[in-house]
Computed example of a mutant assay.
Amino acid sequence: MVSNVLAPVQQRGREALQRLGLPTRKQEAWRLTDLKRLGEIAALPEVREALDIVLPEVAEGVTRIVLGAESDPLDGVRLPEGVTSLTEAELHYHLGQSLDHCGCSQAWPVQLNHAHSRQLLALRIRGKVAPLELVLPTCVGLTATRVLLLLESDAELELFQVFPAEGSPPDVHQAHSHVLEVHLGQGARLDHGVLASGSGDASLMVHLAIEQEPGSHYGLTSVCRGWRFGRLEPRVLQLDGQATTGIHGLSMTTAEEQFATHSSMRFDGPEGGLDQLQKAVAADRSHSIFNGAIQVPRPAQRTDASQLSRSLLLSRRARVDAKPELQIIADDVKCAHGATVSQLQQEELFYLRSRGVDADEAAALLLRGFCCEVVDRLPAAVKAWMASGAIADPSRPL
């Protein structure tokens, strides 16, 4: 069934990539991107088999689904009550709709995913259901996965996505392309956590397309670290306003890594709300990028949107680029944005050292405090991953 649905999508994706070629620096969204690394990802062979990975015990009350190989991800999985797979007819109707509505169906990363994706998870959520954990391991070569979620009116779901690539050997190129489409019905709620932990020469490209009907709430918490090249693109659309969105992100880079977050928020109706906080920690010769776009057209009166970007530079050679974009046409709105780039405060370091804390430990404590504002928002299932050692504490020093 899935192959019947994805085959024409793959063909259109391959044709689009041939037509588009690689992005160039003349395109604003790619102006700061390391295009050489992007080209290396595009040239990788597709993954045909999943690697054997050791997973921690599943947290109590959580249903785990593993994607990445060509086999059915639901084999042997008992879905919680209220969660069902979409039929082929439903797939043909809904697949790609959120991408189209959010204006990203023709984006290069999406077309890359379309051309290579061989696995699709498509679920319908009714009522308040038990938490889901999606594990998306990164294998040698190019892994491409795709997920579609339809939350009916008043449905509630906690979704935790884990991209584990720690321990990846150096000089072995791995990349993961992932596309997630979500439609939130009236009054629905999705609490969405993303933990992406890479190493070595692993790369990650994640594209999120989220549609919200009135009365719904979407909360995204993302923590990404250790990727040689990474790009996270959450695109959220409030269809008719009267919805709330929370986006809290943390990216951590070291060595010569580059990680970019490009978020887009559009209000197409009145009385919508946004609370966004994007944090970054850049060490060594790494490069962190944040581009946050907010669109408030005339119908979106009484919108209340707040966006804050805070970045820490841990090295004089590290680089942070932050670019907030606000396009406001409506005249009755509350919109605020801010961006700061700083180093660890010498006064705070002195305070800790004067009380017997050595310099390294003092810096680690301050860094942990900076990160925990986002990390502590991750779903409780993250504790099982950290306790097992499968993923290091995402708030620990780089």
Rank of each mutant, 00 (worst) to 15 (best):
V2H: 11
Q11L: 14
P23Q: 02
R25N: 01
Q27I: 12
E28C: 05
W30T: 03
E40N: 12
I41L: 14
I41G: 03
P45T: 06
V47Q: 04
R48G: 14
L67V: 01
G68F: 01
A69G: 15
G76H: 04
G82V: 04
V83Q: 04
L86R: 00
G96L: 01
L99R: 08
G103S: 05
S105I: 04
Q111H: 08
N113Q: 07
H116L: 05
Q119T: 11
I125Y: 10
A130T: 06
P131W: 01
L134W: 01
T138M: 07
R146E: 01
R146W: 04
L149T: 10
L150K: 09
D154N: 12
L157C: 07
F160W: 09
P164N: 04
A165L: 00
A165D: 00
E166R: 00
P169K: 02
P170Y: 01
V172R: 06
Q174E: 02
H176E: 03
L180T: 13
R189W: 10
R189G: 10
H192L: 05
H192T: 03
A196P: 05
G200P: 00
G200K: 00
D201E: 13
S203I: 03
H207G: 13
A209D: 06
I210Y: 03
I210G: 11
Q212M: 10
G215R: 05
G219A: 15
G219V: 07
G219H: 14
S222K: 03
V223E: 05
W227Y: 14
W227K: 07
R228D: 09
L232E: 11
Q238M: 15
Q242A: 15
A255R: 14
A260H: 11
M265D: 02
M265K: 02
R266P: 07
L274V: 06
L274E: 04
K279E: 02
A280C: 14
V281C: 12
A283E: 11
H287D: 13
N291K: 13
Q295M: 09
R302A: 09
T303V: 05
S306Y: 12
S309Q: 09
R310T: 08
L312E: 08
V320L: 13
K323M: 08
P324D: 02
Q327W: 10
I328V: 08
I329M: 09
D332V: 00
V333G: 00
V333A: 00
G338P: 09
V341H: 10
Q345H: 15
E348K: 13
F350Q: 11
F350N: 13
F350M: 08
L352G: 13
S354A: 15
S354E: 09
R355Q: 09
R355K: 07
D358T: 01
A362R: 10
A362V: 11
L365K: 12
V375F: 02
V375R: 04
P379C: 10
A381P: 08
K383F: 02
A384H: 14
S388R: 00
A392L: 10
D393L: 04
S395H: 11
P397G: 08
P397R: 07
P397L: 04
L398T: 07
